[in-house]
Write a protein that binds this DNA or RNA. Structure first.
Lengths: 245, 245
DNA sequence: CGGGGGGTTGATCTCCTTCAATCAACGTGG
DNA sequence: CCACGTTGATTGAAGGAGATCAACCCCCCG
């Protein structure tokens, strides 16, 4: 279920330069090292339920998690996609506002809330980085508002694929070499929850983009992108949107 | 056009206890006092265009502004509604990401970006408050994602009215006494841009809510709410959502 | 009195949802 | 090895919520 055994050195950590600890000096890092602990979750496992008491915060180290909201009648909207280095939890809040679910096997680097908040008060570098990350998330949320409010189903799918491509590229710092390709970390239903669509519409639009040669599929999850500019055009973004090129 | 003349004492400021300066001690406040300046804008005036260089940040003191994104073909989505005490601009970013527009006559308390960033580095209270405010905005944005992605037109209208009522109540700290009533600070078209609808649909749904007795109209802008619980129910929110009651 | 901005209402259309059938991949147990 | 159930995905047909196009109203102001 959970694995508290592994304990990686912060200096070896794959998300060292992007996570909430990115700005920390080595002495600050060693203090964090002392209070951190790892937790593992299986694909499909719920990490926290909305409304639950939440006594920790943490960073996604490997794997992918989602933030979702659910209405009483079951309508669901995903409000965040958490990739490695993303932060979970809110300092100063004791109750979770969203469901957090692991969509793949997941490892998180956690801190109990109280020690982390104390550390934050004493370590401006952490608060600074957290502010940066929160502002980035706010930008992403606002970009998503445009998508949800105004884009067509086809544009939504194209946007989702290009955003995943962009984030993956940013994470691995690898230049798009030859044909770009991405793994969709979500099922059709999860995509639908993210995009404010039904799973059937997601499936239809993916098929349509494939038929029109905008993407190619290899299995259900793996997408190849012969022409990234074409995809961005289909997404309806301003041409420069991605800084991927 | 712009009025740089007035200069209110921070201690007298109506947004003193909610804005980015809320946590400042009196000595910190007097340093802010020295670098602040006021700017006034007329209703309808654009404060900043997306993509423009932006060399200041600031707080809305009085009036209402909006943040909007526009696609190449003209589709518009509002991504933020700025009420008094809300913060405009992003430290560490020199180019505006959204159009900012005054929808009413507006007064802002501004700081040139560089001095403000310096001040932020030296004054944890400011960065702390800004982090709090940004996290609140992120929550609001995520609530809006649920609205845009999953709510019906009727639910969207009911949600908008209840959110404005909630924010107005929070600002004036007045208990809902007798019949609740709010002024809509937006035209039908602006509401449509906020809700991801057309102005015609907004108009129709407002009429429908009126016909069903959920709201009463007095003129086009003034809304009376005979039963706030009924409105919240129409909004599709979890019953406790507003903490207004 | 004319004109324009904001708002309402009506008729039609369309894109997406809904409901449903089918399929492919996979594991399980007889 | 094959019948069976399950899960995720695709495809089809029908219906509906909201968009689109258009007419009209109200009120203020020059």
């Amino acid at each position: 279920m959970q694995d508290h055994s592994t304990h990686v050195q912060c200096s070896e950590c794959p998300i060292r330069h992007r996570a909430v600890c990115a700005k920390c000096e080595s002495d600050e890092l060693s203090r964090l090292e002392q209070i951190k602990y790892y937790r593992s979750f299986q694909a499909g496992q719920t990490i926290i339920w909305s409304g639950d008491r939440m006594d920790f915060v943490g960073s996604v180290v490997t794997g992918i998690a989602t933030l979702t909201q659910t209405m009483e009648d079951g309508r669901r909207q995903m409000v965040g996609l958490l990739l490695p280095s993303d932060f979970v939890g809110r300092p100063g809040r004791s109750v979770a506002a969203y469901d957090v679910t692991a969509t793949t096997d997941l490892v998180m680097c956690c801190f109990r809330k109280k020690p982390f908040e104390d550390m934050m008060a004493a370590t401006p570098h952490i608060a600074q980085r957290l502010l940066e990350m929160t502002l980035d998330e706010l930008d992403a949320a606002r970009e998503w508002m445009l998508l949800l409010g105004r884009k067509t189903a086809r544009e939504k799918i194209a946007s989702l694929i290009s955003i995943i491509a962009r984030r993956e590229a940013a994470l691995h710092l690898r230049k798009p070499k030859g044909m770009l390709s991405v793994d969709l970390p979500l099922t059709r239903e999860e995509m639908a929850d993210y995009l404010g669509l039904t799973l059937e519409t997601v499936s239809r639009q993916i098929s349509a983009l494939k038929k029109d040669g905008v993407i190619a599929l290899e299995g259900n999850r793996h997408v190849q992108i012969p022409d990234i500019d074409r995809l961005l055009e289909e997404a309806g973004d301003d041409s420069d949107g991605g800084m991927l090129v």
